[in-house]
Design a protein around this nucleic acid. Sequence first.
DNA 1: ACATCAGAGCTTTTT
DNA 2: GCTCTGATGT
Length: 731
Amino acid sequence: MDINKITDSLNNAQREAVTAPSQPVLVLAGAGSGKTRVLVHRIAWQIQMRQLSPHNILAVTFTNKAAKEMRGRIERLLDIPTQRMWIGTFHGIAHRLLRRHAAEARLPDNFQVMDASDQLRVIKRLLNALNMDEKIWMPRDVQWYINAQKDEGIRAKHLPDTADPHEQQLALLYRAYEAQCFRAGLVDFAELLLRALELLRDNEELLAHYQQQFRQVHVDEFQDTNTVQYEWLGLLTKDQNNLFMVGDDDQSIYGWRGAKIENLTRFMKEYFPTPILVKLEQNYRSTGNILKAANCVIAKNQGRMDKELWTTADDGELLAVYSAFNEQDEAHFVVERIRAYVATGGKREDTAILYRSNAQSRQFEERLMITGTPYRVYGGLRFFDRAEIKNALSYLRLIANRHDDTAFERVINTPTRGIGTKMQDDLRNIAREQGISLWAAATLLNTRAIQVFSALINALSEQAEGLELCAQVQLVVEKSGLMEFHKKDKDKGEEKVENLEELVNAAKLFYFDKDNTENMNELDSFLTHAVLESAEQQGDDADDCVQLMTLHTAKGLEFKQVFLVGMEEGLFPAQQSIDDVVRLEEERRLCYVGITRARLQLTITHAEARWLYGRSTYPKPSRFLRDIPADLISNVRMQTTASYPANSAKPSEFSKPRSTYPPLMSTKPAATRTPIVTGRYKTGQKVSHAKFGAGVVVRCEGEGDKESVVVNFKQVGQKQLMLAYANLDVL
DNA sequence: ACATCAGAGCTTTTT
DNA sequence: GCTCTGATGT
């Protein structure tokens, strides 16, 4: 293949980056400037020009999605298999190294990765064992503390001596936590990275081996790397001149979990004078007006690496700004606008509602539901996080490793088998006193009920031997009694059964790549997959859906039409960030990210009154809104005939009861239109189900009403929100 | 073992 | 005000 195919389609800056000599390269890539493209083409170029084998390529991303995308695009561009390429997330690659060299990393070779909720359980148990009050030592804070240390590469033994009793206790906890994880063969997310760093740091030959193997190292979203990741990259590429990084300081929005935006400048300084800096400033995504707005907002940040997006595209429409009375009005406005958009041929899936915090989705969901508009909320519970799935996985984990205390605790009495709090406490005490696992403690205590449990696990383990993965999962789900147990769940039984079946299905579909899974067997591999690649929500709704997500989740995505909602001081920027310059700058970057998601149309809304934490608030419009020049903005009003509370009404009057909110305009004639009934209903009424978009349509009979009522219900949070229409066919 | 209740908290989150 | 958690009661 000739080189033209790789460089022809690039603009000058992109080509400069792709064809840069073997030196450290930093590509500052603005939003929508073709960053993935550059990464992919650079890899292709390396393989073509320097005759590198795919085996010599390392490419690291933060998300599985990005890794998958990159792999796909390389395959398409070069038409070569990419199996042998090391493309993956930081965690995935670290994990792979640790499996390969478990002994050198001083890990048991059947170690398992645990997710954040498992980690929290370990910490809670520890606090309990150490007799520490959870009110003072809040598990979340402890977890945060431990992770923050690990992100910085600090082990418990490295912690400086301190006279502060609080610090001392934290250090003690950290130490105990490390010991407990080791005993149970569990590794948390931060540990994967830190362990992988130590592995290379402490094993010269190993390091040399990988330095040689990875002739080129590529990093995506470099601004999101934390200290450990940065140092790990540094080790791997030391004196190799082969680090190629892409990032955008203006899109650094994960500082709060350890990402160091300074890594960009640190890199430029440490590698001085060699690094080549390339800026990608041409934007191919948004209209001129949207870009101008984005540039004005981000310009207020200090110490940026000077960069400004431009485009050859038209100015496009003005940004629409809507000042809502309250959050309900805001939602109503947005949804009406989406409906108008759809009515004129627009697609719902091209539309996104972006908000600062998840709690804000509620109002929009209600409105979308009332109007029967299909939508999808991102960022809910993931499949592998569901209780029933975690239970099933815990049985599998115990089969793989009896000493996995977290798994043990989860299922010792699930389904209930007469091992209550008392007996569990006894087990924990024995385990703690003797420094052994709960499983080992169980063999010592050895009561009748415990024997039953141990026998069950052993039997499952024996029977699973030699079976196909999905048969193993099937076996466990059935024989453990989980299926039956979850079937009994009153309102979610059906869903849980479905999920368990889906787990068996997932096992069936799971591809076990023997060559790349190092020392793992298929079950280990599947368990790791469940934690590390906790797949996107199952693709249940393929239909045309409005997309709802937080600004963080939206990073890396684009939509024709974007609604940036809740643009108010206290919400966005978040209250907790307002008094801190560093945090405020991150909020501003978040805003920049939000604006630059829009391709054609950006609508910003804010409410003049908002019901928050049980009281009315009257927030000011966000400062970010003020940073957008007035001549880019058109203030818009509601485009419907729905009656509204007068503008002059006292805020408290229109922000009060939800039930008095004006009914939705229906396409049906007024005579057949009935006000919407919104309220809480007892679940488990006589209802029959039928699929409907994101929700379910339910026929509700004999509810005191003269006519039969069609109820569109969907679970929002914990409460069953029901919206009823009489004689109104929302479909 | 299951239901009910009081109390706290209430940004963002992939891995 | 809502929602989750853990403790308390039957």
